[in-house]
């Protein structure tokens, strides 16, 4: 075909699969170039995380994995089939984040993502308490999703500028996905808060149940202070103003208020040190049971 040919090649995406009429029922498997499965693996190829960066990645990875595990429990139990798919998508994004982060964390000690996920006991987990709180009803899950996704959006947005290229790459990929999680949670908060009397009552209750676990997300400690000084980590407390205004915007539209008075409890937290609520143990027991029955096995 000459360079000036008026006939262009057909766009490659318009293949037979997208035009069932032309295929008349033939089925083929698309050939396509697969993207990297683990974010940051290209940018950080061969890089070994420092002990501090590994501990930090572990915190973030554990948050994502524990939340993904919870969302996995919704599948086949969601309020509508479309929502089974939506929650599944969010869970899959989170597993992706967890794998990338745990993979990186493991480079410090020569452990794989699966060794970290399946062979650590409860006190070795570093997730914040919010993520291990049970699903409750759909409103509780949505309240937890709202807090988690607004927090993670601010976190990954800032972490994309990390001086650690692996963390920066993981954050840059994750922030786009979490942006959608934020939207999903917001849409449902609006509908539940502005729907029926029952849904509003449940949404208010969901917010009450969730709010005690907000403070822990924004607590600084020695590790984050050290890492933030080097530009590796984001100091959690610096994320709070943006988080608060995002919450304000959603709550204003949904006519919701932050819990106050008797319901405004703050949980002590402690997940970053390995101290957990009673919910994490059973969650890990279930997640790890099969892998631990077969030490050294490959799957």
């Amino acid at each position: 075909m000459s360079e000036n040919s008026p006939v262009e090649e057909r766009p490659t995406k318009e293949d037979a699969s997208r035009n069932p009429e032309s295929t008349h029922g033939d089925v083929s498997v698309d050939r396509l170039a697969l993207a990297d499965e683990l974010a940051g693996s290209a940018e950080g190829a061969g890089r070994v995380a420092s002990a501090d960066a590994a501990e930090y990645a572990l915190r973030l990875g554990d948050d994502a994995l524990v939340l993904a595990q919870q969302l996995g429990m919704w599948i086949t139990r969601a309020p509508e089939l479309e929502e089974d798919i939506a929650l599944g998508n969010i869970g899959l994004d989170l597993i992706g984040h967890a794998r990338s982060l745990l993979h990186y964390a493991g480079t410090a000690t020569g452990r794989s993502e699966d060794e970290l996920a399946y062979w650590r006991d409860e006190p070795e987990w570093r997730n914040a308490w919010l993520f291990e709180q049970p699903n409750g009803d759909f409103a509780c899950t949505i309240a937890r999703q709202l807090v988690a996704s607004l927090y993670l959006f601010e976190l990954y947005g800032a972490l994309a500028d990390s001086t650690d290229p692996t963390l920066a790459a993981i954050a840059a990929k994750s922030v786009k996905e979490v942006d959608y999680h934020r939207d999903h949670a917001t849409q449902w908060v609006l509908r539940l808060a502005g729907g029926t009397e029952e849904s509003r009552r449940r949404m208010i209750r969901g917010v009450e149940v969730t709010w005690p676990y907000v403070d822990e997300l924004f607590a600084d400690d020695e590790l984050t202070e050290r890492l933030a000084a080097d530009g590796v980590a984001v100091l959690p407390s610096t994320l709070r103003p943006a988080f608060e205004s995002a919450v304000d915007a959603v709550f204003a539209e949904a006519s919701l208020e932050r819990p106050s008075g008797r319901t405004a409890v703050t949980a002590s937290g402690g997940g970053r040190r390995g101290s957990h609520t009673e919910h994490l143990g059973p969650l890990l027991a279930e997640m790890q049971v099969l892998a631990r029955q077969h030490p050294g096995a490959s799957w």
């Binding site: 994995l65 993904a68 595990q69 996995g72 429990m73 599948i75 599944g88 869970g91 899959l92 597993i95 992706g96 967890a98 794998r99 745990l102 993502e113 699966d114 996920a117 399946y118 279930e286 997640m287 049971v289 099969l290 892998a291 077969h294 096995a297 799957w299």
Partner: peptide, 14 residues
């Protein structure tokens, strides 16, 4: 899904 023996298998199954 909750008991898949590796994170990759968990994602695939989900």
């Amino acid at each position: 899904i909750t008991r898949a023996p590796s994170l990759k298998r968990k994602a695939i199954l989900m």
